[in-house]
């Protein structure tokens, strides 16, 4: 029997990309996607189930479909995208319900994968230049996003302890850039204005969106329990991020930079969520040797990630948009998937 995979957040960037990637795997028998909205990407055989962000129906779904792998991508890592309350509901309450369903007595689940972020390490002056997975952050928890992700990880840790027969994998991704994803940093780079703190030029890491999906695929296909850092090779100064990305630096004063950034943010010139402040003051580096030793290979370095983003951005500027946007239409999807008049196996 092939694998039966449940992907959360099918309507979000990562859920959609992950489901698309899994569709190409012949050993994956069934893909089930949960989402609060309709998926934004074309999918061939993924089943879509609408749910609320707290997954209250999840234990029923897990029992009914007998999934053996859960890929939890529906974690919000951008605090400027949602309100604090929603952030908490999605991250903490969502994970809580997900794990409750996965750990229910008699559940068929054998593997749980959680997509976390290196934001859990924070950014402070006492940090080591490279964080390893077992290191704990040195600075206090200052932002809601970090607090929420730490809470999620502690839930996952407890879950893994209580269910030793399950393979629980947590991937901590560095800041992501790529052709499609929109993050506060990519927003700033697209606007060609990158905020920085005057007098600081810290070293940062990036990971390409394809590598993110490939890393998720890798841990789905292999049994690698534990926590892993995921980031592109090398570190580079923040000023170089601007230079490769084709943006100008907007220096903010070292004292209360958020206050001075507020007017720019208000008019939409930049995005400056609280978790970015520590990063552009002290930077962050994570040691990625653990995942590498498990057998994963990166396609992009940190600098290569920014270049890939910049090239996609150039193309977008030249052609005026990234092409047509996909719209999910239930009837059309049903027709292509189930109608006897459609000839299967040919490219539609």
């Amino acid at each position: 029997m092939g694998r039966r995979v449940l992907v959360t957040g099918l309507d979000t960037f990562w859920g959609g990309r992950m489901a698309q990637a899994l569709e190409g795997k012949p050993d994956v028998e069934m893909i089930l996607g949960l989402g609060t909205k309709e998926p934004k990407v074309p999918l061939e055989r993924t089943e879509f189930v609408r749910s609320d962000q707290k997954y209250s129906i999840l234990s029923r779904i897990v029992r009914a479909t007998q999934v053996d792998t859960i890929v939890h991508t529906f974690l919000e890592t951008n605090s400027s995208a949602v309100s604090n309350r929603v952030l908490h509901e999605i991250n903490v309450i969502g994970t809580l319900n997900l794990l409750a369903a996965a750990g229910a007595a008699g559940a068929s689940v054998r593997k749980v994968i959680v997509k976390s972020s290196t934001h859990v390490y924070g950014a402070a002056e006492q940090d080591p230049t490279w964080f390893r997975e077992e290191d704990v952050r040195t600075g206090p928890v200052r932002t809601r996003l970090e607090r929420s992700l730490l809470e999620v990880e502690s839930l996952v840790r407890d879950f893994a302890e209580d269910n030793p027969h399950l393979a629980v994998t947590v991937l901590r991704f560095a800041n992501v850039l790529g052709t499609d994803i929109i993050t506060p940093i990519s927003y700033n780079l697209r606007k060609r204005v990158l905020p920085c703190i005057a007098g600081f030029d810290p070293l940062v890491q990036f990971v390409e969106e394809d590598d993110v999906v490939r890393a998720l695929e890798f841990v789905t296909a292999n049994r690698v329990p534990g926590v892993f850092n995921v980031a592109g090779e090398g570190k580079l100064p923040w000023s170089e991020v601007a230079s490769i990305g084709g943006a100008h630096l907007l220096p903010l004063p070292p004292f209360r930079p958020r206050l001075f950034a507020a007017p720019f943010e208000r008019v939409g010139a930049i995005r400056f969520p609280p978790e970015l402040e520590g990063l552009i003051r002290f930077g962050r580096g994570v040691d990625t040797s653990k995942l590498r030793e498990a057998g994963f290979e990166y396609r992009y370095s940190s600098a290569g990630t920014i270049r890939s983003f910049a090239q996609a951005n150039n193309l977008r500027r030249a052609t005026g948009g990234s092409g047509e946007e996909y719209r999910y239409e239930q009837d059309v999807e049903q027709f292509f998937r189930h109608s006897p008049t459609v000839v299967r196996g040919v490219d539609t």
Binding site: T129, P237, E240, I244, A303
Partner: peptide, 18 residues
């Protein structure tokens, strides 16, 4: 030990320690 080859996307010579 750090990079086997030149990372040609780089624009500066700042190493991983800064």
């Amino acid at each position: 030990a750090v990079d086997a080859e030149v990372d040609d996307a780089r624009r500066s010579d700042v190493d991983e320690w800064g």
